[in-house]
Nucleic acid binder design. Structure first.
Lengths: 334, 334
DNA sequence: CTGTTAGCGCTTTCAA
DNA sequence: TTGAAAGCGCTAACAG
């Protein structure tokens, strides 16, 4: 059993109250006593029991991290890791820890998201990977628990969001292709239940319309964000629109699927088709040809989510929606 | 503020003890009382405070999850996600939750792994991504806290491990290639500070020696597990040993790098070079040509780690080393 | 079968 | 500048 505050007090010959004050940096302790207590605590290797402290302060400094249904073989984790790291790093600095909120709550009794957080006295939640038709989405957004969702622009009383400015990102991609002289630019979108899909489509359409194309005649195909999906989408889209000289994909994985499709047909990017993706996952830099893409600042998204949440919790800040600027990365594929 | 047990007791007109007993499923409560209490608890939407419970039971049902230095742009997360899911799923069933143990402990004051776990009263730890020269490794293995490490065969008083039988896996790969008629089989290994590298090399060597080759003349090159590393390794190894007709890579990512190298040179697997990887990450199925590989049962590794740890914690089981059998997956690249 | 009592380890009034 | 005492919400003897 670990050392308790009582043992430290006894060894330092003071009351536990004084130990508590000394160790928590209160000013009303004489320097001499403080030093003695610190020394004793050190010698005994004392570690305050966070559980006991939480019970009295009513603060657990615990943040829930929820990734929806990711266990089901989704490929989304190629995208989310840097976000997680950004969150974790910043939260550690701010003195918070992350606990994973299981979505496959197969515990003895079924337990909801909010029940879990209530029992554990989780102070706030960051959620990602949520589809618009995800049953959790509503629960999280409407819950009184402070929360931040990634990539879903829903604001409520206690829920903010962080995401990339996808409309702008898509425009960057299209303008880049237009600038390269392309006129026939297709778009392979992600599934319709992702909020980002709508924005990326809008960005694509607006940029194309600005360039003089008719919105209702744009070559668009809806896929599912995966590599395989991107491959199939490319085939279908190019069959229907053989005149295309460029395709913008709403994810790197789909774009890589496109590259693969081309390769299988003995064709190549950027010669036969210019290819631009979205996300800038690690893979994009190393595929052949290296993939041009719209970089999302994923680590920063994580950091921002962390700070926003803590501000809601600690400083009574109200929920905000924050858009981070993406960045065009030109590589070999376009 | 959430509802407390006291309020439930008052509303149900019993003592808090009885409420506790009823809700925790003790038998010494009359059916009628129990039902009444359950109903009241339900109505009030009562959720027991896990913090308070932990303080008295001295159990937090919290497991630490440590991934070493993964934030530093490592590509290891392609591998580890399914392990995490396996753990999380099984631990949820067993009534435990995962808390992330930050390795970049930039908190106000520096705090070690063990300090963190002590303060949070973490009951056990699963660690992965540990290099043999990782400073955490020693600390974890020697710590009195029950722990399980993934992919490092170090056993101690309180630390067990789970990993794939890498020697066997490598042998499967080599035998497969031998069976296809290959005689000149090279090996691209991961970095030397990974325990799995040693085993995979041993498996390769033993299989080759069994087939009549001399151990000291085998074409081996040490790389770093990454795609880019695998690409470079392929170039170097093939330059030095142009006679090779097959290469076995110690990771899928490196093998994919190999495929890419071939492609850039206008050559192809399996015609010009048979390629086999290790891990069976999601990507391997969708690259072209689809990658033959040694499948690690990653979800099962996670499940096993969870069960082993819980057995150490709950049932006073002693630490074990567990090897899971890998599986040869033959696809197009060989 | 139920209630009383005594803590778990800590923080926080309130007095001294 | 220090200590005594109360109590956070719960479980667990021990009586009755």
């Amino acid at each position: 059993m670990p050392v308790t505050i009582r043992e430290v007090a006894k060894a330092a010959d003071v009351s536990i109250t004084t130990v508590s004050r000394a160790l928590n940096g209160y000013s009303d302790v004489s320097e001499e006593t403080r030093r003695r207590i610190m020394r004793v605590a050190e010698e005994l290797n004392y570690r305050p029991n966070a559980v006991a402290r939480s019970l009295v302060t009513n603060r657990t400094r615990t943040i829930g991290f929820l990734v929806s249904e990711l266990s089901k073989g989704r490929t989304g984790h190629y995208y989310l890791f840097p976000i997680l790291y950004g969150m974790q790093d910043r939260l550690a600095e701010l003195g918070y820890d992350l606990i994973l909120v299981s979505t496959t709550t197969t515990r003895q009794r079924e337990i909801t998201y909010l029940d879990f957080c209530t029992e554990r006295r989780v102070e706030g939640v960051v959620a990602m990977g949520l589809r618009l038709d995800d049953p959790y989405l509503h629960e999280i957004v409407e819950s009184p628990l402070p929360s931040v969702v990634i990539d879903v622009p829903l604001l409520s009383d206690r829920c903010g969001y962080v995401m990339t400015d996808n409309v702008y990102g898509a425009k960057l991609a299209v303008r880049h292709l237009l600038g390269r002289g392309h006129k026939k630019i297709g778009f392979v979108n992600g599934h319709s239940q992702a909020a980002v899909s709508m924005d990326r489509r809008r960005g694509y359409e607006e940029a194309m319309v600005s360039a003089g194309f008719r919105a209702d005649q744009l070559p668009v195909f809806e896929s599912d964000f995966t590599l395989e999906g991107g491959k199939q989408a490319s085939e279908i889209l190019l069959e229907k629109h053989p005149e295309l000289t460029a395709i913008f994909y709403a994810s790197d994985l789909m774009a890589i699927g496109g590259l693969r499709f081309l390769h299988e047909r003995g064709r190549n990017a950027p010669k036969d088709l210019a290819v631009v993706g979205f996300d800038d996952v690690e893979l994009s830099e190393v595929v052949t040809p290296a993939l041009s893409t719209i970089r999302q600042k994923r680590y920063e998204i994580g950091v921002t989510a962390a700070e926003m949440l803590v501000e809601m919790m600690d400083a009574d800040g109200f929920p905000q929606g924050r858009m981070l600027a993406p960045e065009l990365i030109v590589r070999a594929s376009s």
